[in-house]
Design a protein around this nucleic acid. Structure first.
Lengths: 191, 191
DNA sequence: AACGATACGGAACCGTGATTCCGCTTGTCA
DNA sequence: TGACAAGCGGAATCACGGTTCCGTATCGTT
């Protein structure tokens, strides 16, 4: 779940506890400082030594990737929930709103969304395409109901969410990113 | 113009030449590598020593800021040109298109637009507000003609351009940022 | 309770890249 | 054309942060 299911024997009790602390501290510090959050600070915040942190995540990149994967999985859950909304357009709009909402304050994910820092994000593809499958269905349904432009595609979804994420990440003052989302949702309508 | 008008005596001929080379190399390398472009490489690309580069721009931040100011000034020119377009909505839309277009490949500016890297961007405010004045007029006119939402504000403009810049900066594959701009322009219409 | 596998802490190490320093060179001006 | 301020180059310095290493501590099993 966290690192990877592939590894066998369960963690020692204390190690498991530390792992959870590290993840939650990482989330908190990345949210607070973006990618500038330092490994050492994360360890300290979690109340463990750096060595311990590195035992679970061999690099900073690995740590960030783990966090991002979790969020993609959460996205998939949200998308699935929204798929059961009757109105096709509302399903799409609600999904976008909820995903954006859940992204707020998750700098690690935001960065991944935006591909910053030349990380390779190994192992994300899998989670990403699982999500894409669901989103594609939702878009298809919305198009079939003629409530959104016919030329809307799954790639547009990624791009637009990236832009909205940017508004969220960068514009700390100014109007809320929600407004940006509103504009885009309106712009998705036919024509 | 480049560094600051405030400094008196004109540069020595060779220094002026080098300054221009440095600026153009900086633009090129930032475009190519984003903020990862290194001072040393910029100097080398310009055919000067690092010491020379640092003589004009005491820090990397100063260099980037200079480039960004130039672009804001260019934005102002574009905005002014567009102000003379008769149709109010077209004026706004064209301005946004042209500004975005001129931003393509200018990583330094893109970063500024997005506020990355915790730079302070000292001295930009001036140029920024000069631009804002013009844009505000264009928006006001568009609203008066009822061709865009009544609640559109100058802050929305900044946010939206930031989002589009992000699409431009981050989504090297996928659809073009122009599509994102299309969505937003459509979404700016009344209601 | 004893033992080996796991895990822990954190000082030391290292690479990267910005910035400084200073002895030498060149443009400008009288 | 001589003097000197302005400019130049680039090796050396520094700071910062990620990563490694290893002696010690703890867990879980027999």
């Amino acid at each position: 779940m966290t690192t990877d299911q592939r590894d066998q024997r369960p963690l020692r009790a204390d190690a498991q506890r530390n792992l959870e602390r590290v993840i939650s501290s990482a989330r908190a510090l990345f949210a607070e400082r973006g990618m500038r959050a330092q490994m050492e600070d994360i360890a300290a915040h979690a109340g463990v030594g750096i060595g311990t942190l590195y035992r679970r995540f061999p690099t900073k990149e690995a740590l960030v990737t783990a966090l991002v994967r979790q969020r993609f999985q959460e996205f998939a859950v949200i998308a699935t929930e929204c798929e059961s909304i009757e109105d096709p357009y509302l399903a799409l709009a609600t999904m976008m709103r909820k995903q954006a909402e859940s992204t707020e304050g998750d700098a690690a994910f935001q960065l991944a969304m935006m591909n910053i820092d030349s990380f390779s994000w190994d192992g994300i593809e899998e989670d990403k395409s699982a999500l894409n499958a669901i989103v594609t269905r939702i878009i298809k349904r919305a198009k079939a109901s003629h409530q959104v432009r016919e030329d809307l595609g799954i790639e547009d979804f990624g791009m637009v969410m990236c832009g909205i994420t940017a508004s969220m990440y960068f514009m700390h003052d100014g109007p809320s990113w929600r407004r940006h989302l509103d504009f885009v949702l309106a712009g998705l309508r036919p024509q």
